[in-house]
Amino acid sequence: MSRENDRIRHELLALRCRRGEPAALAELVRVWEPRLFFYVRRMLAEEEAAWQVMQEVWVAVLSRIDRLREPGRLPQWLYAIARNTLMSHLRGRYAERERTATDAPEPVDEDDPLERWADAEQVYAGLARLPPVDREVLTLCFLDDLSIAEIAEVLAIPPGTVKSRLFKARRALRAVLTGES
């Protein structure tokens, strides 16, 4: 399906949700939860924490859907809410770590044979070893298939910054996957 068809489909879904149609709200969750969860899960090590963030994302989405000004920009709006919720969660977690003075990062078991089961699993494991900024831009670009302009909107940064972050992140991922880091 073309991007224009997707945009129209997203716009119609957003308009139906704004009208409060229960079927549209259910469709919104059914269609977008896997994509948003995939994004959130790539940014968090624990699945349970990702589901907690997703609950907060859906509360925010459902309480603000009537304020969506441009229904055709539904994907960017959803990812922006997911990102803001995720960042709030991470800030809270970092603040908690500082309070408890346990700043040591969680160990990653790189020798686990299940992590190297398939190429996709290797990429996911490599992503987990990247800094959040690199992981986020790669996830939005390659795994969630957003354009440079859409990523710029979600991250609230200029498109040129997205391009340079992508370049740096690709190089970092390549280094991790080839064992150079």
Results as ranks from 00 to 15, higher is better:
Pro132Lys: 02
Arg18Ala: 14
Arg116Lys: 11
Arg129Ala: 03
Pro34His: 04
Tyr124Gly: 13
Gly126Trp: 10
Leu44Lys: 04
Val61Met: 11
Ala26Met: 00
Arg73Cys: 05
Arg97Leu: 15
Leu143Ile: 08
Asp145Thr: 10
Gly92Glu: 14
His10Leu: 04
Arg3Trp: 04
Val59Lys: 09
Leu62Arg: 04
Trp58Glu: 13
Leu15Met: 10
Leu138Glu: 12
Asp134Tyr: 12
Phe38Met: 01
Ile81Cys: 10
Gly72His: 05
Leu25Asn: 00
Arg35Lys: 14
Ile81Asp: 04
Val29Ser: 03
His10Met: 08
Thr102Val: 01
Ala60Gly: 06
Asn5Lys: 06
Val133Arg: 15
Ala82Gln: 07
Asp145Phe: 10
Val123Leu: 11
Leu68Pro: 09
Arg18Cys: 07
Thr85Arg: 14
Val137Ser: 08
Glu56Asp: 15
Val108Asn: 04
Arg97Gln: 12
Val137Met: 10
Pro105Cys: 01
Trp32Glu: 12
Leu114Glu: 14
Arg42Trp: 03
Val31Asn: 00
Arg69Val: 11
Arg3Leu: 10
Thr139Asn: 06
Ala80Arg: 15
Ala128Asp: 12
Arg16Gln: 13
Pro105Arg: 06
Leu62Gln: 09
Glu121His: 03
Val59Asn: 07
Val108Ser: 11
Tyr39Pro: 06
Leu140Trp: 09
Met54Tyr: 10
Ala60Asn: 09
Ala23Leu: 02
Asp66Glu: 13
Glu48Pro: 03
Arg42Ser: 14
Arg9Ser: 14
Val31Trp: 06
Pro34Thr: 05
Glu27Met: 00
Asp112Leu: 13
Glu21Pro: 08
Glu33Gln: 12
Gln55Ile: 02
Asp144Gly: 07
Ala45Cys: 01
Trp117Pro: 00
Leu138Pro: 05
Arg99Asn: 07
Tyr79Asp: 07
Pro107Met: 03
Pro132Leu: 14
Arg35Cys: 05
Leu62Met: 11
Ala120Cys: 04
Leu78Thr: 07
Glu27Cys: 00
Trp51Val: 12
Val57Trp: 00
Leu13Gly: 00
Trp58Cys: 11
Leu146Asp: 11
Arg83Asp: 08
Leu13Arg: 00
Val61Pro: 10
Leu130Asp: 12
Leu130Glu: 09
Ala104Tyr: 10
Val57Gln: 06
Ser88Thr: 08
Ile148Trp: 03
Arg42Phe: 11
Gly72Asp: 09
Tyr124Arg: 14
His10Gly: 01
Ala26Tyr: 00
